[in-house]
Write a protein that binds this DNA or RNA. Structure first.
Length: 582
DNA sequence: GTGCCGACTTAGCAAACACATG
DNA sequence: CATGTGTTTGCTAAGTCGGCAC
């Protein structure tokens, strides 16, 4: 459809005109995700293989032979022995409770104290296994690789409408011990083995329905074309549903991704109005409206998440904007020469700490003081607000607007601005890429995408530094050689020595360039110590901005996106020209 | 409104892999 | 060719948000 393709090229939203994809030949009515879906079902975790006889478990110093079920769960713990969390009280308590459920009554009556359990022999056995796997011959490794490829080929793809699509996670999660992030009350609980009887298959009626493993039945086979998943089951820790879905490279995911950025671009058009509106609302007579307006200001300015309520005791204690509590902020009328500073300190998604001191407008500050009046530290800051109220309001301001759109919008617009600001036309490619990474980094910092500093960070920095030192020496040598060659040429005045000068010059230049590249690399790495760029790149930055930037400055797209990322963003690579504006 | 569920996106970490280096 | 290092991929937990029942 040439018309739609042109719309796409111009970056205009075809979505405003129709809700189906320009990639798809056929149109879908509202809510319909596909017409035909065929797949081979999931791959189950390999069955438990009992330990060899010579691997012993000891209870209270004495050898004890465990039943297969109890042994399996014991191996989960043994495999984690080196990990810090097996020392944690909650982890141990949860594990022991669930382990006991798997024991025979005899085992249950004997094994009453986890501290008397000795898993070290089992642990050593697994370590030896890991080691042996590493030492495998090339042929053996090749064989495993081929087996994996076979599995991928057989189960890793499906047919959705007229396309063969890659499946994201076709393997069922194996049983093990649950480890939540942060201080999770359920850490150590047994994540049970998923059986075909737990599995719901979703595919089209007229497709070849995947057969369950011999001797088993599916829980259900359904034909729901209003959803995108192929397989689902209910997980036993939180009771939530898990899905098998398509890879980000698929039409259905790509289209959704595109749509997400188009919504963010629509926000761009009305964000000024919305900002004026919430600034007005700071003065509202209604408490609810004021809270809503201050929360929205945080979401917009600081890219905070919406912050749904969570069930207490079921998950780690983390918050987002609407669920902030009084204890998470401190108000400083004056701090380090700045007025009206709010100090945030709370755990967000994945228990990542958000710590920030932000000067805010006086009205916001005064409102916060008001919201905190007569409250305990553990009380909600925005007691008249939740995500549902906020999102309903946002919906009124713009169709399709929700709290998370602000994160997408601010991330993408920041990238675009930073790229404009930081890219120096005279820079060479590595320096331009450094600029790109810095722009990316600005976004990651905004979104608080942190990572644990790599374990080998210091060492790797030192290695890089010594490389730089070596290169500097090499450069000094090359310069000396050039100098003497020049002197030589002056005396001799023949062609050969002139040529030598030229080649020495080139050598110096080459080394200078290499040195610069290394120094750029060092800067980049140092600045990136605790920052994770991947998440924003993958989820928040309109890929068309990056594609356009690459085109504009002649940077090969491979320098910015690796293979997987290029597959995910194929739609954008295909679509964006160098003049694309977010 | 509130609580709950279902579907989907977003997230950091660890294992696997690829590639450079000695 | 082994080894070490940086990059990529896999894994799955943890969010968002809409819809439904009460």
């Amino acid at each position: 459809c040439a018309f739609l393709k042109k719309l796409k090229r111009n970056g205009d939203s075809a979505l405003n005109i129709c809700t189906w994809s320009v990639w798809e030949e056929e149109r879908y009515p509202e809510g319909i995700k596909w017409k035909f879906l065929e797949h081979k079902g999931p791959v189950f975790a390999p069955p438990y293989e009992p330990l060899p006889e010579n691997v012993k478990f000891y209870y209270d110093g004495k050898v004890m032979k465990l039943s297969t079920k109890a042994e399996e769960v014991a191996t989960f713990f043994a495999k984690m022995l080196d990990h810090e969390y097996t020392t944690k009280e909650i982890f141990r308590k949860n594990f022991f409770k669930d382990w006991r459920k798997e024991m025979t009554s005899e085992e249950k009556s004997t094994i009453t104290n986890l501290s008397k359990c000795d898993f070290t022999h089992m642990s050593q056995y697994f370590k030896a296994q890991t080691e042996a796997r590493k030492q495998m011959s090339k042929e053996e490794k090749q064989k495993i690789k081929e087996e994996n490829e076979r599995l991928l080929k057989e189960y890793g793809y499906c047919v959705m409408d007229n396309h063969k699509e890659r499946i994201a996670n076709f393997k069922i999660e194996p049983p093990g011990l649950f480890r939540g992030r942060g201080n999770h009350p359920k850490m150590g609980m047994l994540k049970r083995r998923i059986m075909p009887e737990d599995i719901i298959i979703n595919c089209s009626k007229d497709s070849k329905i995947p057969p369950p493993p011999p001797g088993h039945k599916w829980k259900e086979v359904r034909h729901d074309n209003k959803v995108t998943w192929l397989v689902s089951w209910t997980e036993n820790i939180q009771g939530s549903i898990k899905y098998i879905m398509l890879n980000p490279s698929s039409r259905i995911k790509g289209e959704k991704d595109w749509q997400k950025y188009e919504t963010a671009r629509r926000l761009k058009k009305c964000v000024d109005k919305i900002r004026n509106q919430y600034r007005e609302d700071w003065k509202s007579k209604e408490m609810k409206v004021r809270q809503r307006a201050v929360a929205l200001y945080f979401i917009d300015k600081l890219a905070l998440r919406a912050g749904n309520e969570k069930e207490e005791g079921e998950t780690a204690d983390t918050v987002g904007c609407c669920s902030l509590r009084v204890e998470h902020i401190k108000l400083h009328p004056e701090l380090d020469g700045q007025e009206y500073v709010v100090e945030f300190d709370f755990l967000g998604k994945d228990s990542i700490r958000y710590y920030n001191k932000v000067p805010v407008e006086k009205r916001v500050f005064k409102n916060l003081q008001l919201f905190m009046e007569n409250k305990q530290p553990e009380d909600d800051l925005f007691d008249r607000l939740n995500t549902s109220i906020l999102n309903k309001h946002l919906q009124d301001l713009m169709e399709g607007l929700t709290a998370k759109v602000f994160r997408t919008y601010n991330a993408s617009i920041t990238l675009q601005q930073q790229l404009k600001e930081l890219t120096n036309p005279d820079d060479n490619i590595p320096a331009k890429i450094l600029s790109y990474n810095r722009a990316n980094r600005a976004v990651a910092i905004l979104c608080n995408h942190q990572r644990a500093p790599p374990k080998t960070f210091e060492k790797s920095m030192m290695n890089l530094q010594s490389k730089i030192d070596a290169k500097k020496e090499q450069l000094a040598d090359a310069r000396r050689e050039l100098k003497s060659a020049k002197a030589d040429a002056k005396v001799r005045r023949d062609e050969k020595s002139k040529k030598t000068v030229e080649s020495k010059k080139k050598a110096v230049q080459r080394i200078e360039e290499q040195l610069m590249k290394l120094e750029v690399q060092a800067t980049d790495r140092e600045e990136n110590k605790q920052i994770a760029l991947g998440t924003s790149k993958l989820n928040y930055l309109d890929p068309r901005i990056s594609v356009a930037w690459c085109k504009k400055w002649g940077i090969p797209i491979e320098k910015i996106y690796n293979k997987t990322q290029r597959e995910k963003f194929a739609w954008a690579i295909d679509m964006a020209e160098e003049d694309y504006e977010f």
